[in-house]
């Protein structure tokens, strides 16, 4: 099966106390983008968020899994200190360095009805790998 046929998408998976976020896409970068959309969806419906503000993000790590944890934690930090929610992301990864732009807006409690804030990404349920069909999976559980 041609991996290009797999449309980038995200999903949640079960954890007894918290929630798992998973991105599935033809490229590693897109999988990271989708995992981040899944993270927004833990808080609110991403369709309700506009993309009026852009934030630059950089992180690096020695392996892809640590990089995913860093990426999500960087977004958690930016959301917390700037009071933002993100709608979409553009990610580039080269030699363990991630550079990205996150697009979103300031949280509006009436409009977004945010359900829960994310404390951090965990190493539980953490994996980043390429399936036999070529699709990249990037996932972890977030503590809420």
């Amino acid at each position: 099966m041609n991996s290009k046929a797999i449309a980038p998408h995200w999903e949640h998976f079960e954890h007894e106390a918290d929630i798992g976020i998973r991105g599935i896409a033809p490229t590693l970068e897109q999988a990271f983008e989708q995992t981040a959309v899944a993270m927004t969806a833990v808080i609110t419906n991403p369709d309700q968020v506009s993309a009026s503000k852009a934030v630059s993000i950089r992180c690096e790590a020695t392996d892809k899994e640590l990089l995913l944890v860093d990426w999500i934690n960087e977004l958690v930090y930016q959301m917390a200190v700037q009071g933002l929610l993100f709608k979409r992301y553009q990610v580039a990864i080269q030699n363990g360095n991630l550079s990205a732009t996150a697009f979103g807006e300031v949280v509006d409690r009436q409009k977004h009805q945010p359900a829960v804030e994310i404390k951090g990404a965990t190493f539980t349920g953490l994996s980043v790998y390429q399936q036999a069909d070529g699709a990249w999976i990037a996932q972890c559980i977030v503590d809420v």
Binding site: T62, L66, N73, V76, Y77, A80, K119, G120, A121, F123
Partner: peptide, 17 residues
């Protein structure tokens, strides 16, 4: 609150590595 979450996040990574 956020302070505890950030301490946890940072030291978890440091302890892993």
């Amino acid at each position: 609150r956020g302070l505890g979450h950030q301490i946890g996040t940072e030291f978890l990574k440091n302890m892993v590595t």
